[in-house]
């Protein structure tokens, strides 16, 4: 009872990376809390899936296996999670901040009247004192996220309601195996007793799942542009530099909102989180929401005309100048020196 639960997300039977990342974080938090780590898998054809989860330090794998449960739809997954949580009373529940987690999480929190914090960038255990009520709380989950356009960082807690729920984006937490020989146990969920026919009123007529066109998280070098790049055309220069360096082009939200580049290249709290060997930030001011998605890069170069841009504070190199002037020089001198 009162353990830490992670919702395992599946796409065509394959476990999403974000679920492994949450299990890794969940295992560390469970160790600190002295509780068990439990995973919930809801889908179809799940034989043996527990063996992929145990190495992350999972003690119990709850499996709901029914042909009607894949692909994901809101109501049956909500019904199963809610009934399971009512019975098991987890203290913490984590989900990916993906289209599935962001569809399921709020629905569950609304049904169970438990607080949910979206898109956390950090989760830690801490205490809290409510002086007005004269109450002390040990071992609460601090759910930390940037807010208000990234100008502030908020620490959110749920003192009274359980589970304490949070969603985290893919790539924000690291994924790490606890032990190849770690063994937990399976608990089968009796699906017919958990869902009713009315949970299947929304039907999927058609699905086209495409591989992501760009894979930012695997790129060793990222050339990222912000609003300061100035136009869609100017982004071509960034593509040129990325190609020369064997990297990918990314962007800040401001550049995406301005229509300079596609949303699937957005880095930051509401985009992708990346940790390349080299991150070249071109005309990016560096609001914290953007920094949250790239500050763990091994090396950061900031190219900016604004000497006081926040990005400069986390950069290893600051090039004071115009992007359109600096990039051609970088291409030229990379070519000259790499031969």
């Amino acid at each position: 009872m009162n353990n830490l639960f992670v919702y395992i997300e599946l796409e065509d039977g394959i476990i999403a990376n974000v679920s492994f990342e949450l299990l890794t974080k969940g295992r560390a938090l469970a160790d600190e809390l002295g509780c068990k780590l439990e995973a919930v898998v809801i889908g179809s054809g799940l034989d043996g899936i527990e063996n992929q989860l145990y190495p992350y330090g999972v003690d119990v794998v709850h499996i709901a296996d029914d042909h009607r449960l894949a692909p994901y739809t809101t109501l049956p997954h909500t019904a199963i999670i809610c009934k399971l949580f009512e019975a098991e009373k987890p203290q913490i529940a984590l989900m990916g901040a993906t289209p599935i987690g962001r569809d399921l999480g709020p629905r569950v929190s609304s049904a169970l009247y438990s607080g949910l914090t979206a898109d956390c960038t950090s989760l830690i255990i801490g205490e809290h004192e409510d002086k007005k009520e004269g109450k002390k709380y040990d071992q609460l989950l601090y759910q930390i996220r940037p807010a208000f356009g990234g100008n502030i960082i908020a620490t959110i807690i749920n003192p009274e309601c359980r589970p304490q729920m949070a969603t985290v984006r893919e790539g924000v937490m690291k994924s790490e195996i606890r032990s190849k020989t770690y063994k937990g146990k399976v608990k089968k969920i009796d699906v017919p007793s958990m869902v009713s026919d009315t949970d299947f009123v929304v039907s999927i007529i058609e699905r086209h799942i495409e591989q992501r066109k760009v894979n930012l998280s695997a790129a060793p070098v990222i050339v990222a542009g912000g609003y300061g790049v100035g136009s869609k055309d100017n982004f071509n220069l960034l593509f040129e530099l990325a190609e020369v360096l064997g990297g990918e082009v990314a962007a800040s939200r401001a550049a995406v909102d301005a229509g300079y580049i596609d949303h699937d290249r957005q880095v930051g709290q509401t985009g992708v989180t990346v940790r390349p060997k080299l991150y070249i930030a071109c005309g990016i001011s560096g609001q914290i929401q953007h920094r949250a998605g790239m500050e763990d890069s091994a090396q950061i170069i900031a190219i900016n005309t604004d000497e006081h841009a926040p990005i400069n504070a986390i950069a290893d190199y600051v090039i004071h100048g115009d992007v359109m002037d600096v990039i051609p020089k970088m291409i030229k001198y990379y070519k000259a020196n790499s031969k």
């Binding site: 929190s109 009247y113 438990s114 607080g115 949910l116 914090t117 809290h128 601090y142 759910q143 940037p146 990234g150 100008n151 502030i152 960082i153 908020a154 620490t155 959110i156 807690i157 749920n158 003192p159 009274e160 309601c161 914290i288 900031a302 926040p310 400069n312 504070a313 986390i314 950069a315 290893d316 190199y317 600051v318 090039i319 004071h320 100048g321 115009d322 002037d325 600096v326 020089k329 970088m330 001198y333 000259a336 020196n337």
Partner: peptide, 28 residues
């Protein structure tokens, strides 16, 4: 159910970044 425990304003420390001018020599 969710309470804001605290709000941290984002204050950046000046870093020890290398400052580079946009000259040919520096970028080389």
């Amino acid at each position: 159910p969710t309470k804001v425990k605290k709000i941290d304003n984002v204050v950046l420390q000046a870093s020890d970044a290398k400052r580079i001018e946009a000259t040919d020599a520096d970028i080389n």
